[in-house]
Design a protein around this nucleic acid. Structure first.
Lengths: 154, 154
DNA sequence: AGGCTATCGTTCCAAAATAGAACTGTCAAA
DNA sequence: TTTGACAGTTCTATTTTGGAACGATAGCCT
């Protein structure tokens, strides 16, 4: 597989995987959602090598997930801030956190709890149908080929 | 980072990433949700090397995402079927597909359309709060430390 | 001025993961 | 008896990561 052109495949999952489909990228995004913005911040909390961190941040900027914003002239320093495109990854991250809570937890309970400021309660993320509002399950979904594809790829 | 113990970290995202945090695994899961079950099926549709496919399938079985079910004696042949734990990954996959649809699409439109059998309509997956049912956005969520952790990790 | 610290990277080499292709083994059908 | 389908394993070359050191810029302290 040519990972460098994965983002041009006729499959939205492939295209997403091209951007966020590796361990470090996902962990970097977690930190971003927890308001980490600076090189040293990512590096020290993740214990990622500086080399890879540099690489991944560049990639995320290139794909428009993070914006590189100067916060100091002299010396030139930048922070990495989620764009709207990056913020839109939230459901993916939350879905992963929730699955981990349910299926990979230990006896001590959840590492983090989430409070919905709007309603004030602790919640779980639930994925629903945009049309009827019902919770979604794999077996209730039927897949059709859409306009953006020719043949037997997903 | 010690990837082999990532699933024991005090962070549900890390634990999920330990299982599905690589390109091939996510693509294999896509095929699983599209009802692919056999070694040759995965191999030919993904163009993954047989070696890696074998490795990844073993890992997914080990983590209880797939079950290895015999479908033929003599010769012994197995298929790989999603367990409930695996089916529960659906929101993650759908969230990724949806993000790809929105942010990585091209002029031709979506590769696939999804129909909700329950209501009969084409839909998008939406992540909502389990308590109030409102759509979730990153900025409306506040994070608290939960019982399963000691200090400053997510 | 000289040296320490903070921040943001780059460079270099060794170790690990992946790609690519060939090979093994079982059995059915031609 | 040969071919083909299926489910892997084994082997080597290439690519990606890990780990640690190095470089650049500037503020602050003495």
């Amino acid at each position: 597989m040519k990972w460098d052109t994965l983002d041009e495949e006729q499959c939205s999952l492939s295209r997403t995987v091209a951007v966020v489909g590796d361990r470090w990228t996902l962990l970097i995004l977690r930190e971003s959602f927890l308001r980490v913005r600076r090189f040293e911040g990512f590096q020290s909390s993740l214990q990622i090598t500086r080399h890879l961190l540099s690489e991944r941040l560049k990639k995320l900027v290139r794909f428009g997930i993070l914006r590189r914003v100067p916060y100091s002239e002299a010396p030139k320093r930048y922070e990495y801030i989620l764009t709207q495109k990056g913020l839109d990854l939230y459901p993916i991250i939350m879905a992963m956190v929730h699955w981990g809570d349910i299926h990979m937890g230990d006896e001590r309970g959840r590492p983090l709890l989430h409070e919905h400021k709007t309603c004030g309660k602790r919640f779980d993320p639930v994925m629903v149908c945009s049309e009827c509002g019902e919770a979604l399950h794999a077996k209730q979904v039927h897949v059709h080929p859409g306009p953006g594809r020719k043949e037997a790829v997903a």
